[in-house]
């Protein structure tokens, strides 16, 4: 008998403690979401690295294409007026 179907790939996100966001930790293979959670606990949190885990099947993630980084991110580059340093203040104003 040969394996008919391989376990799909999952992306693992871990919140290391309350107050911090979930961060991408890596990926793993599992048959379903429950198994992905359990495997993620064993693979990525063997030393109390987390208090909460998200798993999402990798195929469900839509990623931007780095080849299009120009169109995607450059429009923000010349908008210096979005930063506080763009605005001139008299020296007398110490904090603003």
């Amino acid at each position: 008998m040969t394996t008919t179907k391989n376990w799909p790939l999952w992306e693992v996100f871990v919140r290391s403690k309350n107050g911090l966001e979930h961060r991408h930790f890596g990926s793993l293979h599992a048959a379903d979401a429950d198994m992905a959670l359990e495997n993620a606990r064993d693979v990525y949190t063997r030393r109390n690295e987390g208090v909460s885990i998200w798993v999402v099947e990798s195929k469900n993630i839509t990623a931007s294409n780095p080849e299009h980084n120009g169109e995607m991110f450059e429009p923000a580059k010349d908008k210096v007026y979005r930063h506080p340093t763009f605005y001139e203040l008299p020296d007398e104003v110490k904090y603003m």
Binding site: M1, T3, T4, A31, M35
Partner: peptide, 12 residues
Amino acid sequence: GEWVRDAAMAHA
């Protein structure tokens, strides 16, 4: 381990 992997997939 093959039958285990297959069974887990079938169950899922």
